[in-house]
Nucleic acid binder design. Sequence first.
DNA 1: GCCTTTAGCGCCCTCTGCTGGTGAGCT
DNA 2: AAGCTCACCAGCAGAGGGCGCTAAAGGC
Length: 617
Amino acid sequence: MAATEISVLSEQFTKIKELELMPEKGLKEEEKDGVCREKDHGSPRELEAACTSGALQDSVLEEEVELVPATSEESEKHMLTLQTVHFTSEAVELQDMSLLSIQQQEGVQVMVQQAGPGLLWLEEGPRQSLQQYVAISIQQELYSLQEMEVLQFHALEENVMVASEDSKLAVSLAESAGLIKLQEGQEKNQLLTERLAERTKEQLFFVETMSGDERSDEIVLTISNLNVEEQEDQPTTDQADVEKAKSTKNQRKTKGAKRTFHCDVCMFTSSRMSSFNRHMKTHTNEKPHLCHLCLKTFRTVTLLRNHVNTHTGTRPYKCNDCNMAFVTSGELVRHRRYKHTHEKPFKCSMCKYASVEASKLKRHVRSHTGERPFQCCQCSYASRDTYKLKRHMRTHSGVHMRNLHAYSAAELKCRYCSAVFHERYALIQHQKTHKNEKRFKCEHCSYACKQERHMTAHIRTHTGEKPFTCLSCNKCFRQKQLLNVHFRKYHDANFIPTVYKCSKCGKGFSRWSNMHRHSEKCGSGEAKSAASGKGKRTRKRKQTILREATKGQKEAAKGWKEAANGDEAAAEEASAPKREQFPGEMLPGACGETTARVKEDVDEGVTCEMLLNMMDK
DNA sequence: GCCTTTAGCGCCCTCTGCTGGTGAGCT
DNA sequence: AAGCTCACCAGCAGAGGGCGCTAAAGGC
């Protein structure tokens, strides 16, 4: 019936979950040295913690367990259902673990003692290592710590506990006790069930282990109780068929109701024996179905078939609404939800987000909680999902490392000095040191500048070189930009200088940015506000807006030029998109409107006020 | 026994926003 | 000549979509 999962590295010490009244019928009770035990039971996996009344213990750890004098009648037997027992390394002092609890059920008081006398530990070693200890429930009256015999057995990697040689195998509660010692070095691959099966007249524990969390060294011990109903049905146990016993021992009757089967290992229950039997196989490593292509094994033929289909590319489940096909029906259903039905059953309780998959909702919720469970092992970064951590890890290796930190056989020369590096990162860091220095010095004078192009232009003042020639008048210039200005001013009939006027003083500027800069000094409070900004992000946003505004003006000017050439349609087309981008109420005068104003030499342009309005929006 | 359904993990991708660096245009 | 501004780009990270695959339970 009952099973206990004991997590060695788990977090909390839990109480006895349940006590159930056990009918005496079918229990052949033997009393020896004050020990009440049943003689026969279904299988070695079954743990009988038949309880009788006993002396009181005055230490109760669990508040909800009522401490009552144990006065249950001798004839009544009770069954213990043990719950997961968790220890933290520091939480409980070993000597304080002599938990005694009394529970009353159906008028019968049952005394149960946990920990202390019921300790298991996994290996020999200092007792202070609490993580090695596991508690089981032993009736205090029956088993004292001093009387307990150590049973050693080993937790195999195969998740099986094997009885030790010198323990005499059986955990006879009459002879031994709840103090059971687990130790390495015992015979492997031999089930405790098999060894204990010989102890037909002794009360037995069945203990097995399972791997816990992969990220820890946790070992989960499962202690199975005796199933009393099974005792009813099978007063004499044939333990040769352990599997049969496993499948039937967990059957529980509930006063005429339909039978249910309870797994000893987990919380699984089922009303069908076939389901129960199938479930029990999940607690084994039995995977008889082999893929001959990759040698991977599976529990069921269906799983194997699906797997093989991934090799062969067979996709029997085809979507009716598109060309997609899938190996499993579940994939198809999910696909249809994503692509066609848009059904999103998993809804966030904190926002309107909904997802097709539960895992996506779980991931989304982390954006609310701020939880970042995936910690980078090389820096302080933590991610909300595994992929982002994985992507981040590239910055510690792969992309990032190859680009910046990989050794380069070729010399990486500083563009500003003669320094040479073999690591790009070092080069970049070095070049930053040149950022604000006037590293370009003229050979002919004391002139120095930051940029090489500036020095190139300066040198021409010494050489007299004027490489930029106007194609219309053959006038020569040292700088291309000077040629451009000349050309537009004297040879471009369509060139209309854009004029922006300060809304305060009316002064005109050829560049909006200059007008804006002027307006700040012109005493415009709004302009000051716009200029001061509210931090980097705000400034960035302003920059973007200014950039877009400038784009709009440029395109508008282009459109106006085209219009001036008689192509009104082109002019309208050029200005129209920017009108959409900057609605009139947000940026009046921008784009096409600005163009018109410039053309008509009106006073207004794009003002700081407009920008502020945009920022406020 | 078999098929279906459900659940879960993992992987990859896209879109988006932010930041910093750089080069070129412009005044 | 010098400084400002802007466009562009790369890199990184946040958020979410979509699919591949496996495991296990439900149900006939």
